[in-house]
Every structure is written in structure tokens, then in C-alpha cells.
Amino acid sequence: MHNLLDYHNRNGYLPKYKKMHFNMVLIGAGGTGGLLVQRLAKMMFAFENVGTSLILADPDLVELKNLLRQPFISKDVGHHKAEVLARRYGSTYGVKIGYYTASYIENTNQLRDLFSNIDYTVTSGTVIQNVLIGAVDNDFSRGVMNQFFNEEENLVYIDAGIEGVWLPDEEKDISVWTEEELEMSRESGYSGQVVVGLKKNNKVILEPVNGVYPLDVHDAIPPWHNCSLDPYQPQRMIANEFAAMHIAIILNGLFQNFSLDVHYINYNGRTGVSRPILI
């Protein structure tokens, strides 16, 4: 277990810092990110003695197809996902949730601006801890977040990755799929992982996602690309649920004890099995 306050109280005297304020930026407000906001907003409300603030970053609009797997309702269609979730859960629980919908995050300067523009106040004896949460479906965005981790001196970086449902390369109707193709599709899309990276005082304590599951440079398609030009791999809602739950478990440890207990978690939404790699 890593108690983050220990990195700020190593002078041999009584602890100077006794509290933490968590500045959180969540990239992606779709399947995993949207479901996480529901849990996270309630946790921010419940842990009333812990300072928290959150910004959701995602320029995507709610589409009709999103109602099947993501936490939106029909009246949300046509509105920005991040704004809908920030307003809905921020007002419901009375917590600070902002949103950024102007563009996709394509460089580290944008991430730095998001953290610097979070509105918060802290009391003396409080450590401000930035927490970057990635809930994206492409390695381009993960690459930007990984670079940001490398550039920052102090950061918690939590990333969720989900296996997409397998589809044949050829765009053909399911009625003409082979039995093998049907079986491969039925068995796919349930697994995923959540990885925690930790950097304190410019030293990597826990390797981020790229150090555990190296990013695929051949899959580093910018998030603004035209999906119609590339094979689309849908995700299963149960896999998103598991990813959101495991991120919430990690954040619960931060809020409750200012500590991290796991480095990464592998899970399978079909069997319900999770395998954490403890610190």
C-alpha cells in the first residue's frame, strides 16, 4: 500500500500535511466514463471531509445509439455528453463538476490547462493531488496521457482499457456469418484492465498503462477520426460497468485513506472474475 501523504511528510517531525484535495480530470464521458461519473459524484458527496473537484472532457454529442449502453436518456440526444453528466450529477449531489467540450485532447498542454483551471479552495495542511482518469477507446489519447504522466512531477494516472467485441473484417450481415465467426463474436468483448500509474517528486513509483500494457502505435488513431473509415468494435455494457466499478474502488481508497492498494486489475465481465495485482 502507498499512502500518498507519506511522500510529503518525511522530515522526522509531526506530519505537516494531514489532508488531501483531489483535482480530477476525466477524459471520456461515454460507456466507462459516463458510468463512472454516477459513482464518482456520489463518492465526492459521501466523503464530505475530503476535498474533491472534477472536470469531464469529451466533445462528443449524445446519439440515439448511446442510449443502449451509456447512461443517457432520450432528452439528452444532441447535447454534449460531458455537459449533460456534469450538470446532472453535479447539481444532484451538490459537488464541483466542470466540463470541457471544445475539442478532443490532443496534446499535453490541453491537459495542463484543464488541471490549472479547476476551481477549488484548500485549507493549510492540505496536499493538492492531481488525478488523471482515462476512459477512452483509442491509443492516441492514451499516448497523450502517458506523455503527460512523463512530463509531470506528481500525478496519479488511472487508465481503463476494454476489449472490443470481435467483428469480421468484411462488412457483412450477421445472417451470413460462419459458425466460427458467431462464436468468436459471442466470446469476445468481456475482458479489460484498469492500470494505476503513480509519480511523486518526479520519480515513477508505479508504471502507467504503457509500462504494463505497451500502447499499440499502429492503433494510435486520433479520436476525431471518421469512424466510418475504420472497423468499428462495439463494447459490452457489462465490461464498461466492471471498468467503472474498479476505477471507483481505486478512488475509494484515495478518498478514504489517501492510499493506493493495487497497481492494476484484470477482469472478465462474463465470469465476474477480477485479478488485482497488489502493491
Score class of each variant (00 low, 15 high):
residue 31 G to W: 10
residue 71 P to I: 00
residue 41 A to G: 12
residue 46 A to P: 00
residue 89 Y to I: 08
residue 34 G to H: 04
residue 86 A to W: 04
residue 78 G to M: 02
residue 46 A to C: 11
residue 73 I to F: 02
residue 39 R to P: 09
residue 51 G to L: 00
residue 43 M to W: 00
residue 51 G to F: 00
residue 83 E to K: 12
residue 85 L to N: 04
residue 91 S to I: 13
residue 33 G to V: 08
residue 72 F to K: 02
residue 52 T to S: 14
residue 42 K to N: 13
residue 59 P to W: 00
residue 28 G to L: 03
residue 62 V to D: 02
residue 25 V to A: 09
residue 87 R to I: 11
residue 50 V to D: 00
residue 33 G to L: 07
residue 26 L to I: 13
residue 60 D to Q: 07
residue 32 T to Y: 08
residue 38 Q to M: 15
residue 57 A to D: 05
residue 48 E to T: 14
residue 34 G to K: 05
residue 45 F to W: 14
residue 62 V to W: 03
residue 40 L to C: 05
residue 82 A to D: 03
residue 40 L to P: 01
residue 82 A to T: 08
residue 81 K to H: 06
residue 27 I to Q: 01
residue 43 M to I: 00
residue 35 L to C: 08
residue 71 P to G: 01
residue 67 L to Y: 07
residue 59 P to M: 03
residue 37 V to N: 06
residue 70 Q to W: 05
residue 87 R to A: 11
residue 50 V to L: 01
residue 64 L to S: 14
residue 24 M to Y: 07
residue 40 L to G: 07
residue 42 K to H: 11
residue 30 G to T: 05
residue 72 F to S: 00
residue 72 F to G: 02
residue 34 G to A: 12
residue 38 Q to Y: 11
residue 71 P to L: 02
residue 26 L to W: 09
residue 38 Q to V: 14
